[in-house]
Structures are given as structure tokens and as C-alpha cells.
Computed example of a mutant assay.
Amino acid sequence: MPEIQLGAHTVKSHGVKVARTHMHDWLILLLLIVIEVILNVIEPFHRFVGEDMMTDLRYPMKDNTVPFWAVPILAILLPFIVILVYYFIRRDVYDLHHAILGLLFSVLITGVITDAIKDAVGRPRPDFFWRCFPDGKGVFDPVTKDVMCTGLKSVIKEGHKSFPSGHTSWSFAGLGFLALYLSGKIRVFDRRGHVAKLCIVFLPLLIAALVGISRVDDYWHHWQDVFAGGLLGITVASFCYLQFFPAPYEVDGWGPHAYFQMVAESQNVNPSNAVNGSNVEESDLEGGHERELSRVNTHDSSPILEGMNGTMRY
């Protein structure tokens, strides 16, 4: 396919054009960041916590096994590195741009939904007693028996943000997106039965799951908080991924929608190059479907996929 060559659409040659096309999406990302900051500043709902409810909220206060600063590294930086490595292999700015955009949308939308629910629900954390009464002496309203906290305001505020788990939702949003991204790139669902590919895809999900488990072990969250956070993160990640990429089990799951659209437009401009004899196999022509024909000339030919799939016949 002479009109579509690897390295023909790089950051240097087409990066500005692609970014301008999605300028409104980047502006929405900035808006999501502002909303996220506001949600972390406002005071969450202070749910009634009676004296008899403290039995399940007396777990000791512990440091975070996975600190707050480590979550963006796992959920954003790690997937970004993988996406960047693939760009240097294939040199496709469409894949790079849409993968980064989808990843950021996945994490930020998840963050906004998570913190909005946290503030609205105001569920106390398992270690709420020690946050509320650091000296161990409980003080309660004589009439309602509601807590009358004597601890630091900032610590108490954080104690009302148990549901859902932010660590878990962010981890599943970023690493879940990475798992879907890898599924398409290494063609997990190519029906060849390579279980090793599944191990590669499940690794990010395992890391996210371990982050969630650490939140229960540290007594920062109830198990329901972690379950809800994981479900929220992976759901948003799936929607954001499918916004920019075909489903991983599809023949064209290795590339973004924008790439195939660009190929189709270029073939309309150069109809003589629409079907290249050297790239179209007889088995691909037998179906006679226009959609299949438009995709045949766009089979990925990057080295990383050649090594894992051998000849690319579908």
C-alpha cells in the first residue's frame, strides 16, 4: 500500500493537525481537571455515625501500602510508557494521540465520578473512630448519640470518603485501559490459542487488583468500596477505549478508528491504489464485503506484531 507507509504519519509531520482536530477534547480534559480539584476541596457529606456503630469502625490507622503519589504512576505513567514504546515501533501519530487521549479521559472521568460519589455518600472509613477520637476517648451527642469528633478537621474530612475506593477506581481505569490496548496490539483474540498473550493482558489487571486489596488490608476501605471502585474503573475504561479503538476481538482491533478513516479517505483520493495486488490475498477477496476490502490494505505490519503472529491471515 504505497500511500500508507509506516512512519508517514508521525508527531512531527501530523501531530499538530491531529491535536487541532481534537482541540475540544483537550479542553474538556482541562474542565475535568478543574472539576476534580473542586470535588477534593469541598466538604463531603457527614453521615450520621452513632455510638453503637463504632464497633465496625475501630480498625487501627495505618499508612498506605500504595501511597497516593504512586497511583498516577501506575494508572497514567505506566500505560503512557507502553503507548510511547509502541509509537516508536510503528510511528503512527493517530495511535499515539488517541491512546493518550483515551487513557486521560478514562482516568479523569473515573476520578470525577469517584469523588462525586465520595462527597455525596460520606461513608466513614473502617478507621473512622481513631480519626474522630485520636486520644481514644469517644464523645457523643447526649441526645442523638452522633459523634462529636475531637480530631483534626482534615483527617476527619478524609474519614468520610470511604465509598468508593479512589485508589482502586483509578488503577482499574488506567491499567484496565492498558489491558484493552495490549489486547488489540498483540491480537489476543486471533483464535490461535496463545495463552501467553492472555498472561500479558491480565498482568495490568492483577496490579490493579492488588492495589484494591491493599486498601482493605490498610483499613482505609471496606471491601464493598474496593469492589465498586474496580467495577467503576474498568467500565469507564471500556467505554473510553471503544470510543477511539475497535473492540480487541475484531480483525481491525490493532488500530484506532481514525487511522482506518484516514486510509479510507486516501483510497477515495487515489482509487487506483484502493486494492493493491501485493497486499490482498485471495481468501480476503472471497467474502466480497466492502468493509473487509477497506481493511485488508491496513493490516498492521509492525515488528512487534509480526513476531507474535507470523503471517497475518484472517
Rank of each mutant, 00 (worst) to 15 (best):
G7T: 09
T10M: 06
T10K: 03
A19Q: 04
L31A: 14
L32R: 03
L32W: 03
V34M: 11
V37L: 13
I38N: 08
L39D: 02
N40R: 13
F48I: 10
E51A: 07
E51C: 01
L57F: 14
L57Y: 13
P60C: 08
M61W: 07
M61L: 12
V66R: 05
W69Q: 06
A75S: 15
P79D: 07
F80Y: 12
Y86S: 10
Y87W: 08
F88M: 02
V93Y: 05
V93I: 09
D95I: 01
I100T: 14
G102W: 07
L104T: 03
I117E: 00
A120V: 03
G122Y: 02
R125V: 14
F128C: 01
G138Q: 03
D141R: 01
D141M: 09
T144V: 08
K145N: 13
S154C: 01
V155T: 12
E158H: 12
G159A: 09
S162P: 00
S165Y: 02
G174H: 02
F177M: 05
Y181D: 01
I186W: 01
V188L: 13
F189L: 06
R191E: 11
K197I: 00
L205N: 05
A209N: 08
L210Q: 07
H221M: 07
H222Q: 05
Q224E: 08
V226T: 04
A228N: 03
G230M: 10
I234R: 04
T235C: 08
L242M: 08
V251S: 10
V251M: 09
W254Y: 11
Y259P: 02
Q261N: 14
V269H: 11
N270H: 15
N273C: 05
S283C: 13
G287Q: 12
L293Y: 13
S294E: 14
R295I: 15
V296P: 05
V296D: 13
S301N: 14
L305I: 15
N309T: 15
